[in-house]
Nucleic acid binder design. Structure first.
Lengths: 112, 112
DNA sequence: TATCGATATGTTTATAAATATATATCGATT
DNA sequence: AATCGATATATATTTATAAACATATCGATA
C-alpha cells in the first residue's frame, strides 16, 4: 500500500481555476515544440482541450501567454510570450518549495 | 477581479485520495455533534455521502477513525477515535504551515 | 413488542465533465 | 488557385460524478 502526501498549488481568478501544474506543463511544451497541437498530443490531451486552456489564459489574463499563428509555411504555429516565461519561472520556484515541504512532512503519513 | 493563490494538501493511498480538508472537517463535526447525520447536514452534504467517506476511512485505513453505533436510546451515534484526533492535529498543523506560505508567496499573483 | 432516531445501503435520476467527431479557417508556398 | 499543416469552433456522444429517493436495520427504552 503506497501512502503519499501531496501538496499542490494553483491560482484562481474570481474563484475559478486559472493556472496550475497542467497549464504550466502545456506552456512549457508549447515553448519546446512551437506548436499547440504537438504540445497537446505530448500530454495525451485533445487539441480542443489544449486550445480551450490557452484561449482561457489569453482571454482572462491581463496579457497574452501564447501567440497562435494560423496558415503560413508550416500551416501555423504557437509561441509563448515573455509574460508566460516569467510566470513559468515563478511557478516552478514555488512548486519546488512545496516539494521540499512535502519531503519534510512525510511523517504525517504515520498517522494514517 | 479577485486573484488568489491556493495551496492544498491531501493524502493518497495507492494513488487514490484518502484524506483531505473535506474529511478533516467531517471528522471535526462528528466530534462536536456526536452524530454522523448531523455532521453531514452541517456540511450541506447528504448523509449517504458522509457515510461513504467514513466507511472509506475506516476500511482503507490501518485503524478505525469513527465508531458508529446504531440503535440505542438515541437511535445511534458516532464518535471519533484517538487515532482520528491525532490525525486531525497533525493535519491542521500542516494546513496552517501552508497557509503561512500562501501569504508569503502572494507576489506570484503579480505575474498573472 | 412498538417506537424512535440514527446508521446502512441499494436504486434511480439529474448534472456535469470528458471525449469524440466533424468541419471551417487561415496564408505562405508551389 | 490548390495544397498543407496547424489553428478555430461547433455539435454530438460517452463517461463520470453527484443528487435524490427509497428502504432496511439496529437496540435501548417505554
Amino acid at each position: 500500500m503506497e501512502k503519499k502526501l501531496r501538496i499542490r498549488c494553483w491560482i484562481t481568478l474570481d474563484q475559478e481555476k486559472f493556472f496550475g501544474p497542467g497549464r504550466l506543463q502545456l506552456l512549457t511544451l508549447i515553448q519546446s515544440e512551437g506548436s499547440l497541437s504537438k504540445a497537446a498530443q505530448q500530454m495525451g490531451m485533445s487539441y480542443k482541450k489544449a486550445w480551450e486552456m490557452i484561449n482561457d489564459l489569453n482571454s482572462r489574463g491581463s496579457q497574452p501567454y501564447v501567440l497562435l499563428k494560423k496558415g503560413g509555411e508550416k500551416g501555423g504555429g504557437a509561441e509563448i510570450t515573455e509574460h508566460a516565461r516569467n510566470l513559468i519561472v515563478k511557478f516552478e520556484k514555488l512548486s519546488e518549495k512545496l516539494e521540499k515541504i512535502t519531503e519534510e512532512e512525510v511523517e504525517i503519513l504515520d498517522s494514517i
